[in-house]
Structure formats: C-alpha cells, structure tokens
C-alpha cells in the first residue's frame, strides 16, 4: 500500500469523492482506491457509522469486498485483525458501539464462506442480547441463511424471543431471517405474524425490498416448507 499523506483540504475532497462513489455503488473503483490510498480506506470505515442507509450499506459491502480481495491474495492474517476489530467494537469492554459491525461481519462471511466458523456464531453471541444490535444480528443471520442453521439452533431461545417485540422492523427482519435459514421451529411464531400489515424495508441483494410483516412471514413459511 502506498502512503499518500494529505493535508486537511485533501481530506475534504476524499470525503466528497467517497460519498459519490458509495451512492453510485462503484465497488470496483472503491476497492481499487482503498487499496492504493489509506485515506480512502479510512473514509470507508468512518462511513460504517452513517445513519444514511444509502451510504452505509454500500460502505458495508465495500468493506467486505476489500476483505475478500485481501483474503484471496494471501493477506488472511490482516483480514482476521479487521474482523477482530469489528468484534471488539461490539464487546462491552471497549466502551464503543459498532452500530453496523454485525452486518459487516455477516457480509464478510458471505464473501469469505470459510469464516463462518467461529465468526458466525460469535456474531450472534455478541449481539442478540444488546438491544441496539439486534436488528443487525437478524439481518446478518438472514444474509448468511442456511449456513447459520446450527448457530441459530444453539441460540434458539434468545432468537425466538425476538418475536415478542413491538418493533415491526425486528419482526420483519426476524421473519425473513428464519426463512433464509430454513428454521422449522420458527414456523409457529411466523404464523402468529399473519395480519400484521405494517411495512418493513430490508436490504437484500444490494437493494431495498419492501413488504409487510405478514408478507415476510408468509414468504418465510413457504421457504421453510419447501426444504
């Protein structure tokens, strides 16, 4: 990696450039720039804390694609260090909060499947009991689908208890996630969601899909029944 030390003015232009690239989902260009210039790579990681979803999800995806590139070019140790940094940000000892660390971890595993063990189950363990991270946890489970079946079963009680939540986003995410995993014990909980017409938007395959909680539940039930 080359070192390009920018002054404060160049920082502002890097930020602007990154924003454009993220909004346009120009992943190839983003990965190249991050490889070449640390300031871009740093900026992408700052964007993981974005509230604006149009910037945040592409930042998550970019991060994972960079990890994949490094893994495939032999920089496996480095990838593990970054994953450990993500876990540390959701460890209560750190004092910090990695708002989107669970999603980022899941996205990395989706790109580098061998990392499911142990990071998949660790992702659930670190987040399922932390209210601000539950949605990220559920999204991560859905993103990884069947690969998470064993872990989901291990954390069965805590995961199924989310269906008691009042938060429609949690219900929608939980429904979708259980369907992706193909988790049969979730079916009675999914059936109870019939009649809930509130809409929930979920980021799937690089885009937002919007359905009602009922629809997410139905889709999940049919997916589970197919398997």
């Amino acid at each position: 990696m080359k070192f390009l030390y920018n002054t404060l003015n160049m920082d502002k232009s890097v930020r602007k450039h990154i924003r454009e690239l993220l909004e346009n989902r120009d992943y190839d260009r983003l990965v190249d720039l991050c490889e070449a210039d640390r300031n871009y790579w740093k900026e992408v990681r700052f964007r993981l804390y974005e509230i604006d979803e149009k910037l945040r999800w592409p930042a998550i995806e970019t991060f994972a694609k960079i990890m994949k590139k490094w893994w495939e070019s032999g920089r496996e140790k480095k990838v593990r260090e970054y994953i450990r940094n993500l876990f540390w940000s959701i460890n209560d000892e750190s004092g910090g909060i990695g708002w989107n660390a669970p999603q980022t971890i899941a996205e990395i595993i989706a790109n580098i499947p061998v990392l499911i063990d142990p990071y998949g189950s660790m992702m659930i363990a670190h987040t399922i009991e932390e209210p601000p991270l539950v949605k990220g946890c559920l999204w991560g489970i859905g993103r990884l689908g069947e690969k998470m079946a064993e872990s989901v079963d291990f954390f069965k009680e805590k995961l199924l208890s989310v269906f008691q939540s009042d938060d429609v986003e949690i219900l929608g995410l939980a429904a979708w996630a259980m369907g992706e995993v193909g988790y049969k014990p979730a079916v009675p909980f999914l059936e109870k969601l019939r009649g809930n017409k509130e809409n929930v938007s979920i980021y799937i395959k690089s885009d937002f899909q919007r359905k009602s909680v009922e629809q997410w539940a139905e889709y999940a039930i049919s997916t589970i029944k197919e398997n």
């Binding site: 804390y49 940000s89 910090g96 909060i97």
Partner: peptide, 13 residues
C-alpha cells in the same frame, strides 16, 4: 451486569 453496548446514532462511542 455485563453487556451494555449503547450509543447515539452516527457515533461509535
């Protein structure tokens, strides 16, 4: 207790 990951949106600490 242990646990206690919390914050304001947009900030990581």
């Amino acid at each position: 207790k242990h646990g206690g990951i919390i914050g304001v949106l947009g900030y990581g600490g």
